[in-house]
Write a protein that binds this DNA or RNA. Structure first.
Lengths: 226, 226
DNA sequence: CGCGATTTTGATGTACATCAAATGGGGTGG
DNA sequence: CCACCCCATTTGATGTACATCAAAATCGCG
């Protein structure tokens, strides 16, 4: 268990802009943030495991966190959380234990919210329930989209979609830098690392060139065809 | 567009017990239900399509509704909604258009909620936001579970899990009756109908016997091994 | 009893996992 | 600054799960 620190004012500002708090007024934000502390994890640290009693939910301030199910024998990633994303907030409303495990990738700094405190806050500040609902809506939509893509698209198509969704384009040309290792991207897309590598090489014929974490796209419209 | 009817008192009672309203007090329930009417669809009717402007969300009273993405060429089911399940409620909080299409299976009766009215209600009755959050939590958890299972388990394992989750057991023996066609179950599990059929025949060696929609399980514990 | 729809069965193809080995790249210590 | 090592990634060979296509079989129902 890492040590808990007070949230710095920069961290508070960042949380105020995160989806989970962005629809709240000043007072409500303060009330919600009063349930939170900052915690820091080392790469590979496990925050909690499936079925653990749930005391906290989190919002990522820095780094990345993977949510996954299964034991070391056979694991499946459910989601990769980036700065601004929250996870476990559904436990404020329902459930006793976590439904998945969480592991920090790289060094990660998180805001940790005490579930019992937030629960107690719901009566005084009922609009916080709405804020949580907004965050859950977003999660639900992206999880459904992920499920539909897994079922409908091949690996090159899923990779192409990821690239198009994350690239910054200058005209018809575009580029991006992966924010994390390829093996993590592979798991996010539900692929083995080898399959991601092969998907990239398939996409070479569609004008995608990969150089380490830097990726260049010759023509966005060609990639959209895939 | 089907004609809208007032909710009968039996339907109102059913909705009061559904997840989306069950945490609300009398007045809040009445307020929420005042945004709803009953609508009836014929088998195969499409309620709405992906990207349509979202005016309503729904709660199933009778029958089944499938939520899916993609065009007729290539479709993937996201969820099969049963009586008591709601869908589209995330649009009260975020988004303009539907993110998936919805189609009635068999004859279906639904409660149809006007999104704009419910949105307006959120300020007066902020705890309704919490009620929606509870419903969304449940959806999110089940969608995540579905995603994880798709990625981790083979078809016989997913079928076995469905059976164990839905059977009524008498001692070590158990049985169930499928509430809908096998082809629908197949889509719910992300399989082609043929694959479901083959999964059942694989499970015969684990003591599962299928006779039309009636299914008998010789020994629950054997099936859990799968 | 017979018809259409659903399900099963068989044969084949494809996407992706898995295992094993080669390649490459970034950081450390010399 | 360079050599080396470790780990991430790529590449190749093979296996498996499931989709797809094409019948045959069965079910439900008039």
């Amino acid at each position: 268990m890492p040590r808990a620190l007070k949230l710095s004012s920069a961290q508070q500002a960042m949380l105020g802009g995160a989806l989970i708090a962005s629809s709240l007024d000043r007072h409500e934000q303060d009330a919600l943030l009063s349930c939170a502390v900052a915690v820091r994890y080392e790469p590979q640290d496990v925050l909690f495991r499936e079925h653990d009693k749930a005391r906290y939910f989190y919002c990522v301030l820095n780094g990345y966190v993977r949510l996954y199910r299964g034991s070391q024998d056979r694991e499946a990633d459910i989601s990769i959380c980036e700065p601004g994303d929250s996870f476990g907030e559904c436990l404020v409303l329902a459930g006793e234990g976590y439904n998945y495990s969480a592991q920090a990738m790289e060094h990660a700094i998180l805001a940790r919210f005490d579930i019992a405190q937030v629960k107690a806050l719901l009566d005084q500040r009922p609009r916080i329930g709405g804020a949580i609902a907004r965050s859950l809506s977003q999660h639900l939509l992206s999880t459904m989209e992920c499920l539909a893509r897994d079922r409908m698209q091949t690996s090159p198509q899923r990779v192409a979609h990821y690239l198009l969704a994350h690239c910054t384009n200058e005209g018809t040309r575009a580029s991006l830098r992966l924010p994390f290792q390829k093996s993590l991207l592979a798991r996010k897309l539900g692929l083995a690392p080898e399959a991601l590598s092969r998907a990239f090489s398939t996409l070479r014929t569609s004008g995608v060139s990969v150089c380490g974490r830097a990726i260049a796209i010759e023509d966005i419209n060609v990639l959209r065809q895939v």
